[in-house]
């Protein structure tokens, strides 16, 4: 769906200061129909890459190719985008703002009303649509922004930290909607630094570290690549379930010793690191 080819971005700061390299020769592709998590610590270059994708800023080097139908004149008619920390027009109501976005996407007022009827209850924002946006909380802004992103049934949705500032229940609801929209055939590319959210719903991930591509591929591949040569032996001790972490080399020896001590062994499992552990460790 999108192909990034050697994207670099250098910000030239003040005269005597060294230019800042935000992105360094980043290349990867986003396959159609998947949910791709875009991971990286703050300042890794995620938002910069998204801004380049959306033409808000220009890359210093490299190009981006979109695989949309050649009949489509403007790629943005196929893209839905939600910025990080959205801030919308404070004196418009949520409904007016949604109509504004829908009209700009070329939808009729009837179609926009239909879409609002469909999505507003799902985003649990229907009760506030006739209130001015300046009265909205951060979570409500995310919801109304997310709803506006879906109005024109885009083929590709790009979300920049869509779950930040949303409470745990809200996060679950938004994640359910992301999965639901993806099942309808929409490709979703979303950046986050909340690793557990990415692990929960994404098929594959793109890792950026200090502006460089650290990993691209499926989450399973990433975890298997970083699998430790360790296992966990779960056993019962005085009525409590405990575990012992052992290296694969010493696993047989430890098991034999535990059996000799008449310990009730429950299971032996490979010690798979979580995505979060890898996130802090990836090179």
């Amino acid at each position: 769906m999108i192909h990034y080819k050697g994207i670099s971005k250098v910000f030239k700061s003040e005269l005597l200061k060294k230019p800042f390299v935000a992105l360094d020769d980043v290349s990867f592709s986003i396959p159609e129909g998947e949910i791709i998590g875009f991971l990286g610590a703050n300042g890794a270059g995620k938002t910069t890459l998204i801004k380049i994708t959306m033409d808000f800023i220009r890359s210093t080097k490299g190009e981006i190719q979109f695989d949309f139908d050649s009949k489509i004149k403007n790629k943005f008619s196929q893209i839905g985008y939600l910025p990080e920390r959205p801030f919308f027009y404070p004196h418009l109501t949520g409904r007016e703002f949604t109509f504004f976005m829908g009209e700009l996407s070329g939808l009729s007022r009837f179609r926009i009303a239909e879409q609002i009827e469909k999505w507003a209850p799902r985003f649990k924002i229907d009760f506030a649509l006739d209130r001015k946006i300046k009265t909205y909380s951060k979570g409500m802004l995310q919801r109304v922004g997310f709803m506006a992103t879906l109005l024109h049934d885009p083929k590709l949705i790009i979300l920049d930290e869509p779950l930040s500032g949303v409470d745990p229940i809200g996060r679950k609801e938004l994640k359910d909607i992301i999965v639901e929209v993806n099942k309808l055939g929409t490709t979703i590319f979303f950046s986050s630094h909340i690793v557990s959210d990415v692990q929960e719903i994404c098929d594959s991930v793109i890792f950026l570290k200090e502006g460089k591509l650290a990993f691209k591929g499926s989450i399973d591949e990433l975890i298997n690549n970083n699998k430790k040569q360790e296992s966990k032996i779960y056993f019962e001790d005085n009525g409590k379930i405990q575990f012992m972490q052992v290296s694969l080399e010493s696993q047989s020896r430890e098991l034999k010793k535990m059996l000799e001590e008449n310990k009730n062994i429950i299971s032996v499992e490979p010690n798979r690191p979580t995505l979060e552990e890898i996130f802090y460790d990836v090179k």
Binding site: M54, N74, S77, P83, F87, M101
Partner: peptide, 13 residues
């Protein structure tokens, strides 16, 4: 500053 422009120019505008 408020990035409201992002919402508009991310449409076919």
């Amino acid at each position: 500053e408020n990035r409201t422009v992002y919402m508009i120019i991310s449409r076919p505008v």
